[in-house]
Simulated scan of single mutants.
Amino acid sequence: MSDIPTVAVTDLPGDALILDVREPDEWAAGHAPNAIHIPLGDIPARLDELPPTDESLPVICRSGGRSGRAVQWLVQQGFDVCNVDRGMRGWAEADKPVVSDNGQDPQVL
């Protein structure tokens, strides 16, 4: 997977626009504040929801596997995207902001 464009969590601001491809329960438990949620399996049907950006759109999952697959596929479709190295686990370990949608303290599942 070395041909997949990747970005380090530490290179992203806490308010970065990010595409989160995790499942709904993972998203609800905790996600980056400005993330857009489109589960991996829904991406082909929801390409029109990807935001226009002036730079590469970071894609994130829990640890980098699913987002890596999403990035690989999106690059083939002509999108400028990059995989967030170490995913939401790395995001949380770097003390980046995490918010939840479920009323609980945010956590990375």
Rank of each mutant, 00 (worst) to 15 (best):
P44F: 15
P13L: 11
R86Q: 07
S67G: 05
C61S: 10
H31F: 03
G30M: 04
E55G: 12
P97K: 06
V21N: 00
C61D: 06
V98P: 01
H37T: 07
N34G: 04
A28T: 04
A35Q: 03
V98I: 15
L74M: 11
W27P: 03
P39E: 09
A35G: 02
V108E: 13
S56A: 06
I38V: 13
P52L: 11
I60E: 02
R62A: 03
T53G: 07
G78F: 05
R89L: 06
P24E: 12
I60G: 03
L40G: 11
T10L: 08
I36Y: 02
G14E: 08
A45D: 05
L74E: 04
C82D: 07
Q72C: 13
D101S: 01
I4S: 00
V21I: 02
D95H: 15
D54F: 05
P97Q: 06
I60L: 04
D3K: 10
D48M: 11
I60R: 02
A8P: 00
V9H: 01
G65N: 13
K96M: 15
L109P: 03
P44M: 12
L40T: 10
P58R: 14
E93L: 14
C61M: 07
G64I: 13
Q104I: 02
W73Q: 08
P44N: 12
G14V: 11
P33T: 13
T10R: 15
C82A: 09
L109C: 07
P5M: 07
Q76F: 02
N83H: 06
D15Q: 09
A45S: 08
A45R: 10
F79W: 12
V99K: 06
D48W: 06
R62M: 01
G103N: 03
P52Y: 12
L57M: 03
L109S: 08
P97L: 10
P39C: 10
M88E: 11
P51H: 01
P24A: 09
V9R: 04
V59F: 07
G30I: 06
N34C: 02
T10W: 07
F79E: 03
R86M: 00
L50E: 03
R66M: 05
R62I: 00
D80A: 09
P106W: 01
H37P: 01
P24T: 14
Q77N: 06
L40W: 13
L40E: 08
N34H: 09
A94R: 09
G14L: 09
I18Y: 05
G65I: 13
A32Q: 02
P13S: 14
A28V: 02
G14D: 06
G14C: 08
V84M: 07
V71C: 04
P39A: 12
P106V: 09
A28Q: 03
L17F: 08
D15E: 14
G90D: 15
